[in-house]
């Protein structure tokens, strides 16, 4: 810290030096000194009053009108002083907020992390990256004792903190689902009622919910307006859209969801994604869904985790490492 007396002496020395020699170096030192004063929280009008005091000392017989002009200048600077203090205050508050957001982001991360289950018949890969500190994307895997695996992927509309808070609400609603497995259509109908009641009217959630029967290798699924994924049939060696129609959660309380079913053969693949994957914007424009399929196809011989990691890296590169939206990509591959 700098005390009043030290500042006075140093300022006086620099000022005297400059008035004598008018050299550039002293001017530059004055500039450096001003930075130091800012760091020490010295306000503009404090600097000015020091200047005036020194001038009085140097020129005791100063013209009275010149001297009173200093008083006028001092008054005129008071507004700047207030603005400066306000700025300091805001900087402090901003730092405080940033710390709080960091903590909240960490809490959210630990809340939303869903362990990827180890299953003999399925190879599962997941990647989920937020565009900002907090994510509006959500996924979860739950496996029960009867070898049913439930898979959810969701996107809260809006980004940042409001979206993340809403996501946490969904997470709790899902956790309080009854222990026994529930039909995907029923899960979505329940969540729809929760979201419709609780959320700001312009906020909504899209979700894909699937239930995989490991014994029969059947996937039962339903979608609430979620970006469609893909199904890869190894027999046809073809990717098709994993179509499922349904309204977004929170739109209409009485919405019913249709349930779909698919038999998964060895080598088949299910690709689930959030719109951050398909809304990827590059210099040339938006990437097409077909391009995402091509990226996956090129890497199909690798493990599911390697595929999602590598597709993410490629899309991140195409967007010049600036994610516009939260990005989640899940691949489930039935082992051969």
């Amino acid at each position: 810290m700098i005390d009043q007396e030290q500042m006075y002496e140093r300022y006086k020395r620099l000022l005297a030096e400059y008035m004598e020699g008018k050299n550039e170096e002293t001017l530059y030192n004055g500039q450096l000194f001003s930075r130091h004063m800012i760091e020490c929280g010295v306000s503009p009008e404090d600097v000015l009053s020091v200047h005036i005091e020194i001038m009085r000392e140097f020129f005791p017989n100063m013209d009275e009108r010149l001297e009173s002009s200093f008083d006028f200048l001092l008054e005129a600077m008071i507004g700047y002083g207030l603005a400066y203090r306000e700025h300091q205050n805001l900087r402090f508050k901003q730092r405080q907020l940033e710390t709080e957001i960091d903590i909240a982001a960490n809490v959210q991360q630990s809340l939303l992390v869903s362990a990827v289950p180890e299953i003999d018949s399925l190879d599962i890969g997941v990647i989920s990256k937020p565009a900002k500190k907090m994510s509006g994307d959500y996924y979860h895997f739950v496996r029960d004792e009867q070898n049913f695996l439930s898979i959810a992927i969701a996107d809260v509309i809006g980004k940042g903190i409001p979206a993340a808070m809403c996501m946490s609400m969904i997470k709790y609603a899902m956790d309080s689902e009854p222990e026994q497995r529930t039909k995907p259509s029923a899960v979505l109908e329940n969540l729809n009622r929760v979201v419709e009641q609780n959320v700001d009217p312009s906020m909504f959630i899209t979700m894909f919910y699937g239930l995989y029967n490991e014994k029969e290798h059947r996937l039962y699924y339903a979608s609430a307006g979620h970006e469609p994924g893909f199904f890869y049939s190894s027999q046809k060696d073809r990717f098709e859209e994993l179509t499922a129609k349904g309204r977004v959660l929170g739109l209409d309380r009485s919405t019913k969801y249709r349930e779909y079913e698919k038999l998964i053969m060895p080598g088949d693949m299910i690709v689930l994604l959030s719109d951050g994957v398909t809304e990827c914007r590059t210099k040339k424009g938006f990437i097409e869904r077909g391009e995402v399929v091509d990226l996956i196809r090129k890497r199909m011989d690798r493990s599911a985790q390697e595929i999602v990691d590598s597709v993410y890296k490629e899309l991140e590169r195409l967007q010049e490492f600036q994610l516009r939206d939260d990005f989640t990509l899940i691949i489930l591959k039935r082992r051969v």
């Binding site: 996107d155 509309i157 809006g158 700001d200 009217p201 312009s202 906020m203 909504f204 899209t206 977004v248 929170g250 739109l251 719109d275 809304e279 939206d325």
Partner: peptide, 15 residues
Amino acid sequence: MDSTGIGVIIAAYKK
């Protein structure tokens, strides 16, 4: 238009 735009339209629809 992205999903935020859809959100505004949904809010207007509800109103």
